[in-house]
Every structure is written in structure tokens, then in C-alpha cells.
């Protein structure tokens, strides 16, 4: 199951053949979290580079199509581009070059590169490790890791109904097209889209009432049972040791870097 059909295209859920696809879901979630926290705190380019290289290596090993993952990474870079371009000009420090009388500093450029490397390394790791799980499996893994059950239930319900409501949305858009609606930049367009959103919410509410009644008929008591057997395998221990080694190497490079800075 994928989250939505078209926009943006979904990654292939883990290929059965690739070793990365068989890593325990709980381990994937934990590694992604620890890796993100660590990467957001290191500054040395050695440590940052190692993190990014590890992300790229894992992407290659995972057997995922490389294009879509890199495109998504580039999309995120687009979001932050303006901030990164501004940073060298707004950070005080050793002047490096100037554009129209505004000096760019070495420190600012370094900060911008730091953010760029961190963000890309984390996005790669997240898209390859937990990002290739089925959304439902992610919910179960979070539940097994001690996330409150009501939050996990909310996530599972959301994942279940995104596809349904996406279909509802497409049907209403089609009905609007059949009545010659074309989106423009005017108030009529915004009002029509507002009615569309309002109707979608009304239908969502009415659907949820039917869902609740159907679930009560089947003995719903507030908790969706997590029916899967997440078994820790010997290979997972090896993977865990490997990830621990990677995180240790990042920390070692960072410590080695600081005195020379």
C-alpha cells in the first residue's frame, strides 16, 4: 500500500531481495532518529561527509531506484536554497567576496554548507531506512517502541483513509471539470476550492460515523491490535553493530576535527 497514488510518486516498498529491505523496522526507526540527532549537532566536514557518504552507500545497497530518491532530496534543497544563499551575506566574519557591495563571509559559507550536508544526509537516511517501510509497518514499529497507542491508532487511521479521501477528492475535481471549472488566480477559484475542501471534510466526518458504527459492531474497544510478529534476527544484530560503528566513526571524526578548527 502506498500513501497516495500520484503526487509525489511513492518509493518502492523494500525489495524482498535486498538485505537492507529485511532490516528490522524498529532498528530502522531508531537508527534514523539517532543519526538525525547526531548529524544536526556535528560541524566538522569530515563527520558530515561521512554521514552523507553513508546515506548514499545505503541508497545504492538498498536497490531502490536512485533517481526518485535524489529528485526528492533536490526538492528539499530547493526549499532551503534562499536561506543558504543569504547566510554568507548575513553572518559576520572573514570577508570572502562581495556582490553589489554586500560582503560574503567565510563563516557564513561554512554554516550554509553545514546545513546543506546535514539536511541531505538525514533525508537520505530517512528515505532509505524508515521511508521504504509500508506506512502501516511504520505505525506498528512506533507502537512497539513505546509510542502511546492512541497516537499510533491515529496514525494508522490516517494512513488508512488518505487513499480513500484522495479518491473522494479526485471524484469531486472531476465533477467540477465536468461543469467547466478551470483553476485561475481569482476569487471564484478560491471560493470553489474552499467549497470543495468543506465538502471533503463533511464527507470525511460522515464516513467516520459509519466507520465507528461498523467497528463497534465488531467489538472495537479503543485499540487496534498490532498483529505482526517483529522478530529480531541475527542479521539485525550485525546491522545494529554496523550502524553503531558508523555513528562512532562520525563522533570520532568530529572530536578529531575540533582541536584543529
Amino acid at each position: 500500500m502506498t500513501l497516495i497514488s500520484t503526487n509525489p510518486p511513492a518509493l518502492r516498498p523494500g525489495l524482498p531481495g535486498a538485505a537492507v529491505a529485511r532490516i528490522d523496522p524498529r532498528l530502522r526507526v531508531c537508527v534514523a532518529l539517532v543519526f538525525a540527532v547526531l548529524m544536526s549537532q556535528v560541524d566538522g566536514f569530515g563527520a558530515l561527509g561521512l554521514g552523507l557518504a553513508a546515506g548514499l552507500g545505503l541508497l545504492l545497497a538498498s536497490g531502490q531506484p536512485i533517481g526518485p530518491v535524489l529528485r526528492r532530496m533536490a526538492a528539499m534543497d530547493g526549499f532551503i536554497l534562499f536561506m543558504l544563499v543569504l547566510l554568507p551575506f548575513t553572518t559576520p566574519g572573514v570577508p570572502l567576496f562581495s556582490v553589489w557591495g554586500h560582503g560574503a563571509s567565510l563563516e557564513g559559507l561554512r554554516d550554509a554548507c553545514d546545513i546543506l550536508l546535514t539536511a541531505n544526509a538525514v533525508v537520505l537516511m530517512v528515505l532509505v531506512l524508515p521511508g521504504t517501510l509500508e506506512p502501516v509497518t511504520l505505525g506498528h514499529a512506533l507502537g512497539r517502541l513505546g509510542v502511546p497507542l492512541s497516537l499510533v491508532n491515529l496514525l494508522l487511521f490516517t494512513v488508512r483513509y488518505i487513499t480513500v479521501l484522495e479518491g473522494e477528492y479526485q471524484r469531486m475535481r472531476q465533477a467540477m471539470r465536468a461543469r467547466a471549472f478551470a483553476a485561475r488566480s481569482d476569487l471564484h477559484t478560491l471560493t470553489s476550492l474552499g467549497y470543495l475542501v468543506g465538502m471533503m471534510l463533511v464527507r470525511a466526518q460522515e464516513r467516520s460515523e459509519r466507520v465507528l458504527q461498523a467497528m463497534k459492531c465488531r467489538g472495537f474497544n479503543g485499540a487496534l491490535p498490532l498483529i505482526d510478529a517483529m522478530r529480531w534476527r541475527g542479521a539485525d544484530t550485525l546491522w545494529a553493530l554496523g550502524f553503531a560503528g558508523l555513528l562512532g566513526a562520525v563522533i570520532a571524526l568530529e572530536i578529531a576535527h575540533v582541536p584543529g578548527a
Binding site: 497516495i4 492512541s150 491508532n153 491515529l154 494508522l156 487511521f157 490516517t158 494512513v159 488508512r160 483513509y161 488518505i162 480513500v164 479521501l165 484522495e166 473522494e168 477528492y169 475542501v197 471533503m200 471534510l201 470525511a204 466526518q205 464516513r207 467516520s208 460515523e209 466507520v211 465507528l212 467497528m215 479503543g222
Partner: peptide, 15 residues
């Protein structure tokens, strides 16, 4: 309220 919250949350995700 769990189903209502979940389905509405999905509706906002799609919106």
C-alpha cells in the same frame, strides 16, 4: 472520537 479524528486528519493531509 478516534475514527473521526483519523479520517479528518487524512482529509487535511489530502487538502
Amino acid at each position: 472520537r478516534i475514527p473521526a479524528a483519523g479520517v479528518l486528519s487524512a482529509a487535511f493531509f489530502v487538502a
